[in-house]
Simulated assay, not measured.
Amino acid sequence: MTIAAGAGDNARPYLYGPEEAGVVEALRSGQYGHTAVTDRFEGEVATFLGVSETVAVASGTSALHVALLAAGIGPGDEVIVPSMTFCATVQAILAVGARPCFVEVSPRTLCINSGAVLDAITADTRAVMPVLYGGRAVDLCDVRPALTERGIAVVEDAAHAFGSYNGAQRVGATGALTCFSFGPIKNLTCGQGGMIVPRNPLEADRCRKLRGLGIVESAAWRAEATGYTVDGFGLRVQMSSLNAAIGSAQLAHFDKAETKRKALWRAYANALRGMDGASVVDVDVERSVPHLCAVRVHDRRDQVFRTLRARGVGVGTHYPPNHLQSAFAAWHRPLPVTEQVGREIMTLPFHQRMTEADVETVTAELRQSLAQTATR
């Protein structure tokens, strides 16, 4: 059997066409740092989300790093975070000198819930970092008053969730300090990049200074001046005009991404319904722009994974639990649900170049692989 081309990659970037012209225009300007092109992209994203302002940075990881610093998180502080996430989430916590407090996820959604958050709060808790796995929003509205009373910030890792809704509002517009990733395979790509949605103008100013080496003045102002002011610590994590140009072109076509990703996820969900040995992780597709399609393989995941890879099907694993990583061993605690999920999780090929025929091919291969491994 020949595997369809769309099934060979777990994820691939998707370009609409105008991205190339945007990059060429930015290249010809001769200015490749944070420029008016970046400012324009920030404004476009703010309008799309329905927020007053956004802060563009070099990556989703740097968005988390800067957001934690802007929220005042630092040495001695504890951040509640699910273990089921990409290691970048945890590295951002360590980068500010804080420590992770790993918590369980729901086995149905792979996201944290309010009960897990409340149970994990200690005297040192200063932030909660929900991870919007697969694009699904995490609603902590019922515990927000308790968190606010204790001075605990909510810093959303929304790397998967650009375009998704939390209730009637887009993720990023609900009052949390929200961080997006615009990496190569995200719902919207800048090639590489990230975005912070600050909670207020003061926090926005902090984020801007932190991303730009602590310099107070804008790049445009400095071009006309003989000096500048540094009033604190900062990083060099601005988004370049080249990346912003790609993002701006992508955003103009985001309705296509939203429609296609929802359709692909629904096609998978329908094809997987009732399949023996595997179940789909629910992303709440009516309100989400799915970033991936994850399944739990209930027995012999590793064998199924190897069989599918050998057949040319681009499956992946997102993610091995972080509390079991040697780098984070100091913060290990038993998390039986996460550990079980970690043994079962597998992501199916999911990108906008795929067709529903590709989905049928992948699910047929999965069904055959499950049957083969069950007989060994």
Score class of each variant (00 low, 15 high):
T47G: 14
V283P: 01
V295F: 00
T54W: 00
R211T: 02
P336Q: 13
D124Y: 00
F48S: 12
R296Q: 15
S164F: 04
N322L: 13
T174V: 08
V295M: 00
D276P: 15
A11R: 15
V81P: 09
G183E: 13
G97C: 12
S241A: 15
V281M: 14
R309M: 07
A26S: 12
H34V: 01
S83M: 05
S369C: 13
V103Q: 01
D39K: 07
V57H: 04
T375A: 13
Q368D: 08
P201Q: 01
S29D: 09
E156Q: 05
P198Q: 05
I80V: 15
E344S: 13
V57P: 03
W331Q: 10
G183H: 12
R208E: 10
G314H: 07
A63I: 06
G163N: 02
A371W: 09
L251D: 07
H253I: 04
V143H: 00
G97Y: 02
R136H: 00
A116H: 08
G232F: 00
G97T: 03
A98Y: 08
A371Y: 09
L68H: 11
F48P: 12
A257N: 09
P334G: 12
S52L: 08
H65N: 08
A127C: 13
V117M: 06
T35M: 03
G33A: 14
N322I: 11
K186M: 10
N322Y: 05
G175H: 06
P184M: 05
S326D: 15
E339A: 13
V359Y: 01
E25W: 08
A225F: 07
L348G: 12
S369G: 14
A26W: 03
S241R: 07
A220V: 15
C111K: 06
R99T: 04
R126C: 10
P320V: 06
R300F: 10
T347V: 13
S164V: 04
D124T: 05
A220L: 11
T307R: 14
V295N: 01
T125V: 11
G74N: 09
D231V: 12
G175C: 02
I196P: 14
Q31I: 02
G134E: 10
G175F: 06
I121Q: 07
L132G: 07
V128N: 09
K256P: 01
E258I: 01
I112N: 06
Y268Q: 09
L69I: 01
T317Q: 06
E156Y: 06
I185K: 03
V51F: 14
H253V: 07
H253E: 14
F182Y: 13
V45T: 08
C207V: 04
E339H: 02
V304R: 04
S218Y: 11
I121L: 15
N270P: 00
A88L: 12
K256N: 09
L210H: 10
L132W: 00
S369R: 06
Q340R: 14
W221L: 06
L242C: 05
D124G: 06
A158K: 10
I73A: 03
V237T: 13
N200G: 13
R367S: 14
V138N: 04
T229M: 15
A357G: 09
C87M: 12
